[in-house]
Design a protein around this nucleic acid. Structure first.
Length: 294
DNA sequence: CTAGGATCCTGTCAGC
DNA sequence: TGCTGACAGGATCCTA
């Protein structure tokens, strides 16, 4: 679930709390989620190493160590990283885990780092830690396939890619990390609304101008989210138990089914596109597949 | 090559 | 109350 802004929020938090500190022990409750090591080999050799930096490639975090190894972390749908040390920090999929006693039922991996502990919680077990040589991170199959992020990509580049997937719905295309990196279900919906494009439009019918607007939308909605600490950020923890969803502060369509469009007043509708729940304003985002040859 | 659907897994919620 | 199916902020694998 965490998308680029949430992962970036986590990256910034981790930099603050774990860099220069040493990993003193590792606990793995779900072995298949810890790739590249086990208790037998010091968990791939990360025990005893110190953290040098935390990088991010799309939605993947890379914790770089001082011994030539790195730990790749992908949160997938329901992953969370929760730091409990002299200070606390949590981000990822929002849930009670942020304020729970840890470890709990959903805790899969725990790293003891410096004076604190880093908990990896993940309800659905889709996420993972993976130990790799730092020099080989860029060769990892996931990272290798990753496209540029919206800020590094020109509108012409994106337009070119859309032509190669001309018959697929535009939402499916922008969710593909090998086409543009960072968007997930929330920001795809938000970016499409920003550009007034219906998610079922075939990619080949998107004009150059619409493509430019879509790219601008992707940048804008994610920047806005990063500025506020990601849609699931740390202040959720500080909330007084209220089930506040930070998303509400900037989402125009996502999770607003039945509420009124902030642009035109029409009711937001939820449909299904590319197998994903999809939120649109039926007035602002109309289907128009003229130009497709079917 | 692309497009679309199933799949990994647990938990929650709507509807009977 | 208890059961059932749908669905969930992701990515991969398989099939046509």
């Amino acid at each position: 679930m965490p998308e680029l802004p949430e992962v970036e929020t986590i990256r910034r938090g981790l930099i603050k709390y774990i860099v220069k500190k040493k990993i003193s022990s590792v606990e793995v409750f779900e072995p298949k989620m810890f790739i590249g090591g086990s208790a037998k080999d010091n968990f791939g050799g990360i025990v005893g190493a110190s953290i040098v930096d935390v990088k991010r490639y799309g939605k993947c975090l890379v914790v770089e160590l001082d011994n030539g190894l790195s730990v790749m972390i992908h949160l997938r749908m329901t992953g969370q990283l929760i730091w409990r040390g002299n200070e606390e920090f949590a981000a990822g999929h929002p849930s009670e885990n942020f304020v729970d006693e840890l470890p709990n039922k959903q805790t899969r991996i725990v790293l003891s780092i410096g004076e604190g502990k880093l908990y990896f919680n993940d309800q659905r077990k889709f996420g993972f830690f993976k130990v790799v040589k730092s020099s080989e991170v860029l060769e990892d199959s996931f990272i290798k396939k990753l496209a540029k992020e919206p800020w590094d990509m020109t509108s012409e580049e994106l337009y070119g890619k859309l032509q190669r997937h001309a018959k697929a719905p535009i939402k499916a295309v922008i969710l593909d990390q090998s086409i543009i990196a960072g968007l997930g279900n929330i920001y795809a919906d938000e970016a499409l609304f920003y550009a007034s494009i219906h998610p079922e439009r075939k990619a080949g019918t998107i004009s150059e101008m619409e493509c430019a607007k879509l790219l601008e939308g992707a940048r804008t909605v994610m920047e806005r989210s990063i500025e506020s600490g990601g849609s699931t950020m740390a202040t959720y923890v500080n909330a007084d138990g209220s089930r506040g969803n930070y998303l509400d502060k900037f989402a125009q369509v996502f999770g607003r089914t039945g509420e009124t469009c902030l642009r035109c007043g029409e009711k937001i509708v939820k449909i299904r596109v590319a197998g994903r729940g999809t939120h649109i304003c039926p007035h602002c985002q109309q289907i128009d597949n003229r130009g497709s040859d079917d």
